[in-house]
Computed example of a mutant assay.
Amino acid sequence: MELVSVAAVAENGVIGRDGELPWASISADKTQYRARIADEPVILGRRTFESMLEDLPGRAQVVLSRTERDYDVETAVHADGVEGAIDRARSFGSDAAYVIGGGGIYELFQPHLDRMVLSRVNGSYEGDTYYPEWDEDEWELTSETAYDRFTLEEWRRR
């Protein structure tokens, strides 16, 4: 199973502020993001999961949390660590699982990723959550597509 990180990242690395995106919604980015992850399991942190309850992404949600719990969502399952989350995502029989945040989750999964799909949002923004830095020598930029207000980059681990 391929493990793919998907994130919208400002030029200064910011991905969030107070649990929200710090920029106005970009419909083309939201559309491509939702289409990409629609039929696959997603891995996300509890706070990110709770912030998306009204419009959950993916076919199934693997919620990483130190505290085991049941969720009132039929498609959501708990995992208590990286390996457990990967095993839970693999159990859905998909070819890929998408890591969708928040910041701490991206950091935990960075060493395990096969690919990154990053929407590079034009501009710098104030925020409290950042996408983790990575060693570009370990990655190859395989595609770049310009859109209005962002550029979609796809990276593959070498």
Rank of each mutant, 00 (worst) to 15 (best):
V9W: 00
N12A: 08
V14M: 06
G16L: 04
R17W: 12
R17T: 03
D18I: 01
L21Y: 01
L21C: 03
I26N: 05
S27W: 12
A28N: 12
D29C: 04
D29W: 08
T31S: 15
Q32G: 12
A35Y: 11
R36Q: 14
R36H: 12
A38H: 15
E40Q: 14
P41R: 04
V42W: 06
R47H: 08
R47T: 10
R47P: 00
E50C: 00
M52G: 00
L53M: 04
P57W: 07
G58A: 04
V63I: 08
T67Y: 02
E68H: 11
E68Q: 13
V73C: 00
V73K: 00
A76C: 00
V77C: 10
V77L: 05
H78C: 03
A79V: 05
A85E: 05
A85N: 04
D87A: 15
R88G: 02
A89K: 09
F92C: 06
G93F: 10
S94N: 10
A97G: 07
A97T: 08
I105G: 08
F109G: 09
P111W: 05
L113Y: 07
V117Y: 11
V117F: 10
L118Q: 06
R120C: 12
V121C: 04
S124K: 06
G127E: 05
E136M: 10
E136K: 13
D137G: 07
S143C: 10
Y147S: 03
R149M: 10
L152Y: 05
W155K: 08
R156T: 15
